[in-house]
Write a protein that binds this DNA or RNA. Sequence first.
DNA 1: GCATAAGCGGAGGCAGCCTCCGTATATTTA
DNA 2: TAAATATACGGAGGCTGCCTCCGCTTATGC
Lengths: 177, 177
Amino acid sequence: MRADARRNYDRLLTEAGAAFAEKGTEASLEDIARSAGVGVGTLYRHFPTRQDLILAVLRDGFEAMATFARELDVDDPGLALRQWLLAQLRHITTTRGLTAELAVAINNPESPLWGSCEVIFSVGTELLGRAQKAGVVRADLTQADVSSVVQGIAWSCESDPVRQERLLDLFLEGVLL
Amino acid sequence: MRADARRNYDRLLTEAGAAFAEKGTEASLEDIARSAGVGVGTLYRHFPTRQDLILAVLRDGFEAMATFARELDVDDPGLALRQWLLAQLRHITTTRGLTAELAVAINNPESPLWGSCEVIFSVGTELLGRAQKAGVVRADLTQADVSSVVQGIAWSCESDPVRQERLLDLFLEGVLL
DNA sequence: GCATAAGCGGAGGCAGCCTCCGTATATTTA
DNA sequence: TAAATATACGGAGGCTGCCTCCGCTTATGC
């Protein structure tokens, strides 16, 4: 790879990382090219699709993550696992787009979307309350917890209902008394 | 509201529902207007933003969901809750966009994105394995389960790290021995 | 230094977003 | 029922972002 190509590649990666973190993964590619000081043609030659660019940015972050993971305390595997998961949460969150508005709305009465989530929320609360009264669900669980977990599972296994069910069961086994 | 306006509103809602289910929430609004047999101007008058349209479609579905929930077996609250959550998963999944490519990739060796997820996956497997060997995590848990749950939590509480942590702990309490 | 392979960049065609306003139609009034 | 009025319609047009294509530039090897 020619020296100038390498330089442009690196600049694009840096700028893309900043842009995605700030504006989400839908940030304008022309803007990214501009702030890297190259033409769009150059961007597209290095990263034929947006996906490719996102992926390259993620890969960068992944390496740092892996390093972090290898340095975690070996003597306390439970704690280490937890720290690892937390770090991942943080990383995913900074690179993820903004599609979560609805997921936020369902737990936030201030949101303009709240009104139409209310029915669902109250019905869910009712069912949860009943299950708790019957003593089959731990009492400290809130409807907000439940809806977030459900949203999350739905999203993360969008095209695999079998996995969705498995994860839901995993969650419930910790929740059912 | 004038009769023709009502008619167009309903048509738009129907077509939008179909389009979002088929192509995700990024479906072209001009296409939706066209298939509803109205001009884009009409679409934008009724639904000033894409968000408004998505919301209206969801609201439609929510009503059916609430009806379903009210009919669930009162004598078995645990089962009723589970059925309710499953129905929600299904509903969310059909209306959600397609941003889940990465979430899928991390559990799918066939995906073109798999390569760069591999490091993360193997490091995670390592940490999980250690925790399991130490007897602090149940043995039947897989790395695929963990990464899906983490992705899901990250997404569903994107802008609220406190909630993220709480949900993670909820999950772990069911998982830790 | 020269040849040439490698890389650059931005014009241009296309698609989707959203606004604006002249036209059309439902509803009200007399 | 016909005029008056309020309400709603539609699509042209301006704009932004996507992606391709190809003539020009520059690094590299001899």
